[in-house]
Structure formats: C-alpha cells, structure tokens
C-alpha cells in the first residue's frame, strides 16, 4: 500500500474537532523513534488541545503505546520535538520532573504498589513529590477514591482487590497528583468483560470534568461516546485522524477499513 492512498503526508491532525483555542496541551512534531534498526515511530505529528479527548487505536505493534509513553518519557524519542504544557521534553532532568508532575498515566497492568495500602498508593506521590501534609494528602486521596467509587477499600492492599477495582485505584492514584493531562495505555485490555464497564464509566466521568486525555484503547463504544478525535495508527505512523463519526463510518484508507472490519468481527 502506498503512502499517498494512506493520506500519511496530509497532516491528518488538522481535522481536530475540539477546542483548539489557546496553546496546545501536547504537541508532537515529526517524532521518530527506532528500536535498534526497527523504525517504530515515523514522523508522528499530533496537536492535542486543552481539554481535548483523543482516542488512539490501531493494530498491535503499530506504535500507539510507544507514542504515548514518549509523552512522559518512559520511552525516549530520537528525532523531532515533544512539547507538553509549554515545556519541551529534553535531557534536562528538572523539566522532565516538571512534565511528569503534570501528566498522569494509567497502565494496562495497573502497576499498583503491592506493598502499600490503596490509600498509601494514592498519597505517596503527593507527599513526596508535591510535599503535601499527610492529612491533606489523605483527604485528597479519599476524595478521589470516592469519585472512582471505592472509598471503602482504602485500607486494603492491591492484592485484595479485583482487577476493575485495581484499575480504578490506579486512576485515583494518578489524579491525586492533580495532573493537567491523563494518558491511558490500554486501561481495559487486562480486564474481564464485566469489569471493563466500571473502568470506562470512571473514564467517562473524568472526561466530563474537562481533563485533557489521550487514550490508547480498542473500546470503540467509548471512543464514540467520549472522543473529540480518533487517531488511527499503523506501522509506526498516523494513518488517519478525525471525529469518531468520520473514522468509523467513512474510513478513507484501506488499512483503516481492514482494521475496523477486524475489530467489529472480534466483537
């Protein structure tokens, strides 16, 4: 398949449907990354506006996770610029810390700290990074645990919770740092079907508060309901981007058509 039919060169991110006034929350400009000789991110350019909700989808190995992991530098890109909340990602550790304080992340495998209670998981970073008094941090944590609807689990350990509960704790833990941006890396992929809904509901609730969000997910229902924009990636590049309606009902490229038919068959 040639690049022209994929519209890869036509800067699809311009098709943003959201509030584009004001400076972008996240700017990716021609970002490239290699693992050894494998080119995993190719000229990724993406603008995410304040309060915009972007859903990233694509087949596995397409570079979706790598892209959002570059945004808080869990992975390093080798070429191009990434600017988060006005701060450019560089080797300067201080700016990295500042960016990580503003960007919350939720992982596929939850990654809760198993040796700490749910409450301590939530208060650790506010206390040690934000330098918040313990009482204040605990009140804040309880507030968020209530919002994700599990305040009664605060004194338990992660191992005592179900997968859905653990993922909601992970969301609350990220929110306790009061981030401006939230990244979700396939947050429901490791969950049983009946638990997916409780996590998606939490994410919808979060979207309603006006949080800037980038979600890597295969939950197309969630994308339709919440996303301002859907970005389709394949083989390390952004192939198509647009409002959910356009992406799902009027795919332009063969690659997206194939992907959508596979996703729909799977459901």
């Amino acid at each position: 398949m040639s690049a022209t039919t994929d519209m890869a060169g036509q800067e699809p991110q311009i098709a943003s449907a959201a509030r584009t006034d004001g400076p972008p929350a996240i700017l990716l400009d021609k970002v490239n990354k290699w693992y050894g000789s494998m080119h995993v991110l190719r000229d990724i350019s993406l603008n995410v506006a304040q309060s915009e909700r972007v859903v990233v989808c694509g087949p596995s190995g397409s570079g979706k996770s790598t892209m959002i992991r570059c945004i808080n530098r869990l992975e390093q890109h080798q070429e191009g610029r990434i600017v988060v909340d006005g701060m450019e990602l560089s080797d300067d550790l201080r700016s990295l810390d500042a960016i990580r304080r503003e960007v919350g992340m939720v992982f596929q495998s939850f990654n809760l700290f198993p040796h700490l209670t749910v409450l301590d998981n939530c208060t650790l970073a506010p206390i040690w990074v934000r330098r918040m008094p313990k009482k204040e941090a605990e009140a804040l944590a309880m507030d968020y645990l209530e919002r994700v609807k599990i305040p009664e689990q605060a004194r338990k350990y992660p191992g005592q919770l179900s997968g859905g509960q653990q993922q909601r704790v992970a969301i609350a833990r990220a929110l306790c740092m009061k981030p401006k941006i939230m990244l979700f890396d396939e947050p429901t992929s490791a969950l049983d079907p009946e638990m997916i809904k409780e996590v998606l509901d939490t994410m919808v609730m979060l979207a309603d508060t006006g949080m800037t969000m980038i979600c890597v997910t295969h939950e197309m229902g969630f994308a339709r309901q919440v996303a301002d924009r859907v970005v389709f990636m394949d083989r390390g590049e952004i192939v198509e981007a647009g409002v959910p309606d356009q992406i799902f009902n009027d795919p332009k490229t063969e690659r997206l058509k194939t992907f959508l038919s596979q996703i729909l068959r799977g459901h």
């Binding site: 869990l74 495998s109 700290f113 040690w128 833990r173 740092m177």
Partner: peptide
Amino acid sequence: AKGQWEAAEALGLSRGLIMRKIVLPQALR
C-alpha cells in the same frame, strides 16, 4: 517488575525515592 519503576516514574518520583519507597521494600521480601 519493570512496571513498578514506570508507574513510580510516571508519578514524578525521583530515582532515589523509587529505590527507597518502591523497589527495595519489594526486593527485600
């Protein structure tokens, strides 16, 4: 697990704090 480092880094904890508060307590067991 590597995910423990990543989760702690994503929260903005420094390497020293991650070692002290996250990795060593789990490594000790």
